[in-house]
Computed example of a mutant assay.
Amino acid sequence: MKTYHAEVTRDGKFWLIRVREIDRSTQALRYRDVETMARELIEIMEGPGSGEYDLHLEVHLPSSVRDHQARAEVLRAEAQRKQAEAAAENRVAVQELLALGLSQRETGEVLGVSFQRVSQLAKTC
């Protein structure tokens, strides 16, 4: 099955779509129409039906947008690490309170969580 590659860029109010394999371009007003417009261009120029080829869209965003996306990914990864650290600290807090002789219900009340959550945390210690 043949694969076509459509390079997509924003230019003013339009999305410009260039299909490399046929060296032709088209445009779309909305991003949701990009794939349809690319497929229509391919089918007009090449003739295959919609199920006879693959289409790969390559969206080229401004470098500032890519920079923001990269920073967001770093922050998400950092947040996941911090969340794991917080969960570990909660488990230790539960373990210490249970070791002091508090019930799971009391531990939950003291920590502001349900006794079911205390039970879950206690099982992972």
Results as ranks from 00 to 15, higher is better:
119 S>N: 10
7 E>M: 14
108 G>R: 00
70 A>I: 06
89 E>L: 14
71 R>I: 07
102 L>M: 13
38 A>M: 03
123 K>R: 14
94 V>S: 01
80 Q>K: 15
59 V>W: 06
119 S>I: 07
39 R>D: 05
48 P>T: 04
102 L>S: 01
2 K>R: 13
49 G>D: 08
116 Q>F: 14
22 I>N: 01
61 L>F: 07
64 S>R: 13
105 R>E: 10
104 Q>L: 05
69 Q>V: 11
19 V>G: 00
57 L>R: 00
91 R>D: 00
9 T>L: 12
88 A>M: 11
57 L>G: 02
49 G>I: 11
31 Y>A: 08
91 R>V: 01
51 G>H: 08
9 T>I: 14
123 K>M: 09
19 V>A: 01
13 K>P: 03
45 M>A: 12
71 R>D: 07
110 V>H: 00
66 R>F: 07
120 Q>H: 05
37 M>A: 09
115 F>D: 13
82 K>L: 14
96 E>V: 08
90 N>D: 13
8 V>A: 04
69 Q>H: 12
123 K>T: 07
109 E>S: 06
120 Q>M: 05
99 A>M: 04
121 L>S: 01
16 L>K: 13
81 R>F: 09
89 E>R: 15
97 L>N: 00
125 C>G: 13
84 A>P: 05
24 R>M: 11
71 R>E: 10
94 V>E: 01
72 A>P: 02
14 F>W: 15
97 L>D: 00
16 L>N: 08
19 V>K: 01
52 E>K: 09
57 L>T: 01
43 E>A: 12
23 D>T: 10
9 T>Q: 10
36 T>R: 15
87 A>S: 12
118 V>L: 00
54 D>K: 14
1 M>C: 06
96 E>D: 09
55 L>H: 02
